[in-house]
């Protein structure tokens, strides 16, 4: 009797419902790691998250060890890393964004022309290259010829990683503009360059801006390519031809040096906060723009 009761519709509905709850449960579980990570960084890092973090350079292993032996908090911060990240990123932005936008405009204009298709495929190819391989390439093409590690080499690596993202977002946001916008500009007698520079690019500005922000946030926490290009530095450096350090690289150093381990958390917390904030900012701009 029970068998007939469980048969057909009711049994199927139950299965369907169970599956639904499973999907919800797993989706919920997927969200947990993000909060776990943030929680752990806050819990372990808030004590060292102080003024010193922004104003002092990273301590040497010796200084940290002495402080540890005498039971003090480890002195110093990550000023050299912050300055380095800023320098490397700024140069990367200068290298990648104009080039990426120009290429994106080219692709949006030429659509399916053979050269455009080739460039589009190559840009996709670039996007897929693992970051460590990009680091290695830059080592070959920049570090070796310049006979030394440098901030410029790191910027080049990050720029190569940003390029495909900027190209893609430029092309996509230009493609979203109606054709009639360009036609209207030309119908008013505007030249091609005037229409591109004064109408098309300004009209897709928020798209370009969002794309650039996302690209920046993606490469900001990169460690692997910097490992083989900028080497690291104990002091603040503003010279792009000199070895430099970065926040992510300092975290890697702290991780490898037991004396410095307690600095990991505050610096990681800072890095994560900056990256996620840029990320959220980019997404909120994108959302606002879509509604309009």
């Amino acid at each position: 009797m029970k068998k007939t009761k469980l048969s057909a519709p009711r049994y199927r509905l139950m299965k369907s419902r169970i599956f639904f709850y499973l999907v919800c449960t797993f989706s919920l579980l997927t969200m947990i790691p993000l909060f776990l990570i943030i929680g752990e960084l806050i819990r372990k890092g808030y004590k060292q998250f102080n003024f010193d973090l922004f104003t002092k350079v990273a301590p040497t292993s010796m200084e940290a060890m002495l402080a540890r032996i005498s039971g003090d908090a480890i002195p110093g911060g990550i000023l050299n890393g912050l300055a380095g990240t800023l320098l490397i990123l700024a140069v990367a932005i200068v290298l990648a964004i104009p080039l990426g936008i120009a290429t994106g405009v080219y692709l949006a204009e030429k659509k399916e022309k053979p050269l455009a298709r080739l460039v589009r495929n190559l840009s996709d190819l670039l996007q897929g290259i693992p970051s460590i391989v990009i680091g290695v390439i830059v080592y070959i093409w920049v570090v070796k010829p310049m006979a030394g590690y440098s901030a410029l080499a790191g910027s080049t690596a990050l720029a190569i990683m940003m390029l495909p993202m900027v190209i893609r977002s430029t092309e996509e946001s230009l493609k979203m503009l109606p054709d009639s916008l360009k036609e209207a500009g030309l119908a008013l007698g505007g030249s091609y360059s005037a229409v591109v520079l004064r109408i098309l690019l300004p009209s897709s500005f928020s798209g370009l801006f969002t794309g650039a922000l996302l690209a920046i946030s993606r490469v900001m926490g990169e460690t692997a390519p910097l490992l083989v290009t900028v080497l690291g530095a104990a002091t603040v450096n503003w010279d792009i031809t000199q070895p430099t350090t970065a926040v992510s690289l300092l975290i890697w150093e702290f991780y490898n040096d037991p004396n410095l381990a307690s600095l990991i958390w505050s610096s990681s917390l800072l890095l994560l906060l900056i990256v996620l904030c840029i990320n959220l900012l980019a997404k909120s701009i994108a959302k606002k723009w879509k509604i309009q």
């Binding site: 916008l181 005037a194 229409v195 004064r198 109408i199 500005f205």
Partner: peptide, 22 residues
């Protein structure tokens, strides 16, 4: 077919767009 004022320009900017573009 569809109204297509330039989205980044003001009303007067739109009217003057032809001059600006030229």
């Amino acid at each position: 077919q569809r109204p297509n004022p330039f989205p980044t320009m003001s009303i007067s900017g739109n009217v003057l767009a032809g001059y600006k573009l030229n």
